[in-house]
Design a protein around this nucleic acid. Structure first.
Lengths: 252, 252
DNA sequence: CGACACGTTGAGATATATCAAACGTGGTGG
DNA sequence: CCACCACGTTTGATATATCTCAACGTGTCG
């Protein structure tokens, strides 16, 4: 059912693998918006697949300093890093109401023993996370505020496009300007001014949790965005730059 | 020989696992300082273990913008992410003269099939990298310049201590102020002023590639450094905070 | 209607970048 | 041995990006 469905979006799983993963689910969970799903340091024994909604992974300092280190969309595992690590170094929280599927680590261990091919795909997902982390470091360390926002919006558009949650130009993004600030290492006040600049330059608007990209090429140029690091399928990238709407394939 | 040796430092490998990894080495390589080891986008078929020297992993933008995303020390794999990814999203270069051991991906594949326990330890290494990436994001996004340097120096001290390359207070760090700037998302001019501040506050000095931490507790406090995200052994962390010199164990 | 969360704007403060120059210092060639 | 150069460090003056503090607007929900 739901798991099978959500795993179709990315083109990485075979039908058989989707079935194995679905069979490994021990439990389904739901959370309200803005709930804490996992607290840093807690030891964990399950992996969590996001079925619906958006999840944030963030590092908190004292003084209420918060840095988002990842935003997860449906089809993503939110804490797969916890399988080799045993406990997480950061917090996980819901941005919207979410539905999750829970897979116990011991079932992943079983999968690892019986199906190394599938194991390597799970490993792959965690290193793609790491690749995205690296781009975020570049963004935080070397881009100006307006470029950081531009880059993040391009990235989000591409990722959501790949799972059918963006048509290539518009998508729902349930983040406040405070959240965007925590993504980009800025204050919410400055995010507000930068969003105005993006609007005035005719690149992009965001109102009521809904993003519309008016000039994707211009936004990509401004944010120095190149999608390679997302490790999406070539055809997705092509359709995205062509502005076509993505069709979900029936099998991988 | 060399591989066996360098893998002893971290306490993660059993003697047998070290032997398996050593047997998987197909080749040894050396590079001069400041050489390019791997270029972004190149497809790769081998994993590389660093035996001697320091390696940088960095993302380059146009305009010569560079952001270091990791610094690797002996015992680290420099491109293990490339095994699931097939091609890397970033560049790898030597900071000093380096010696490397090369393990073909097909041997890792063999290991993955025959030894899932060892496979999970390799996976573990890549997700520890990701955990460090996340802390670097926090550093870049939410800490001030002086805190970023303080945090990086604490981190480096801890990591080098764990492999016997720091006595807990002093270590060789072959980075210029330009490199430190690329680590911390700053300019080299500002790094210079911040290093002076650290010196004047009696926290830390760095001359001729050699770091001396004068007040580790103070430096940790300033940089909000907590070593949990490094996933070091508890006893290493204890000895580090106690200021003891680390002994290398004979077996893991 | 009031309370609350979020967005918007302004004025002024501060951290960091930029540009420019001088200063070691170790190596190299004459 | 000196002259010179390449490279990294140090310092100063000024520019700019971003933050901070404060206020006000706007929509939603009970």
């Amino acid at each position: 059912m739901a798991v099978e469905q959500v795993l179709r979006s990315r083109n990485v799983w075979t039908r058989e693998e989707r079935a194995i993963l679905e069979a490994a689910v021990s439990e389904y969970r739901s959370f309200d918006a803005r709930a804490t799903i996992l607290r840093r340091g807690a030891s964990i024994e399950v992996a969590t697949l996001l079925l619906e909604g958006f999840v944030s992974r963030h590092v908190d300092g004292r003084d209420g300093l918060r840095q988002l280190v990842a935003m997860q969309a449906p089809g993503d595992f939110v804490d797969l890093h916890g399988y080799p690590l045993k406990s997480l170094d950061h917090d996980v929280g819901s941005l919207t109401p979410v539905k999750l599927a829970v897979i116990p680590h011991w079932k992943l261990w079983q999968i690892q023993n019986e199906n190394p091919d599938l194991a390597r795909k799970l490993w792959f997902l965690t290193v793609v996370d790491a690749a995205i982390h690296r781009k975020w470091m570049f963004r935080l360390g070397r881009l100006k505020a307006v470029q950081r926002l531009a880059h993040f919006l391009c990235e989000t558009n591409a990722r959501l496009f790949a799972i059918g949650l963006s048509d290539g130009r518009r998508f729902a993004l349930p983040l406040t300007q405070f959240d965007l600030a925590d993504v980009c290492g800025l204050t919410s006040v400055h995010v507000n001014r930068v969003m105005r600049e993006l609007r005035e330059r005719g690149l992009c608007t965001m109102r009521a949790g809904s993003v519309e990209i008016l000039d994707f090429a211009g936004l990509m140029r401004l944010g120095a965005f190149e999608p390679g690091y997302l490790y999406l399928n070539d055809d997705v990238v092509k359709r995205l730059s062509a502005g076509e709407k993505m069709e979900l394939s029936e099998d991988g």
